[in-house]
Structures are given as structure tokens and as C-alpha cells.
Simulated assay, not measured.
Amino acid sequence: MTALDARLDQPLDLPCGLRLPNRLAKAALSEALADGGNDPDERLVTLCAGSQPP
């Protein structure tokens, strides 16, 4: 597969054998939901808990 063939919404098999269901990621700071130490706080945990696939 070349970079042109890759789609973000398709699974990606890593050399270690792990399969990623997609290549979309969300950083805690993108929603300003981190604490003073830049760690995710409960607001982000709550937000992400509702967005997990079944």
C-alpha cells in the first residue's frame, strides 16, 4: 500500500501485529480539557467515554 492508497477511515496493520481501526486521533489540548500539568481531566474522560464505538 502506498501513501496515496491509504485512507484514514480504514484499518491499518502495524508491523508489531496490532491493528488500528482507523488513524484518527484527538489530543486533550485540542478541546482545552487538560489540567495545569497538561494531563486530561475528568471532562475529557467524560467526553471520550461517550464517543467510543460499541
Rank of each mutant, 00 (worst) to 15 (best):
T2S: 15
C48K: 04
D35E: 05
M1Y: 08
T2A: 14
E31C: 04
D5T: 09
D13K: 01
T2N: 11
N22P: 02
P53R: 13
L47M: 15
G36C: 01
L20M: 05
D41K: 04
A25M: 15
G37N: 14
L29D: 14
Q10T: 07
R23K: 09
G50V: 04
S30V: 03
P15T: 11
E31L: 10
C48N: 02
P21A: 12
S51E: 14
D5P: 01
P15M: 12
A34C: 09
V45H: 12
G36F: 00
P53N: 05
T2H: 05
P11F: 06
S51M: 13
A34Q: 08
D9N: 14
G17F: 06
L8T: 12
A49M: 08
A28G: 15
A3S: 13
K26C: 09
D13S: 05
R19T: 15
P11T: 04
P11A: 07
D35G: 03
S30E: 14
A3H: 05
M1W: 06
A27I: 08
P15W: 07
L44H: 02
A6F: 10
S51I: 01
L20P: 09
R19Y: 00
L29P: 00
L20D: 12
L12G: 02
N38C: 06
R23N: 12
L29G: 12
E42A: 05
D5H: 08
A49R: 12
P40E: 01
R7H: 14
A27H: 06
Q10L: 11
D41T: 01
P40F: 02
A49T: 10
C16R: 07
R23L: 09
A27E: 05
A34R: 01
L44V: 03
A32R: 09
C48Q: 03
Q10N: 13
N22F: 11
L14Q: 07
P15A: 15
D39I: 08
A3T: 10
V45E: 12
G17H: 04
G17E: 09
D35Y: 04
S51C: 11
V45D: 14
D39T: 09
G50T: 06
V45G: 06
P54S: 12
R7Q: 13
L20S: 07
P54C: 07
P21L: 07
E42F: 07
V45S: 08
R43E: 04
C48F: 07
P40D: 01
E31Y: 02
D39A: 13
A32D: 15
K26S: 08
P40L: 04
K26I: 14
L20W: 02
K26P: 00
L14S: 12
P53K: 04
L14H: 03
P21R: 07
D39G: 05
P53H: 13
A49W: 01
P15H: 11
M1G: 11
E42R: 07
M1E: 06
A32H: 13
P21T: 05
L47I: 03
D39K: 08
S51Q: 13
L4Y: 10
P54A: 15
D5V: 03
L20T: 02
R19L: 07
A25I: 09
D41M: 10
P21G: 02
G17C: 07
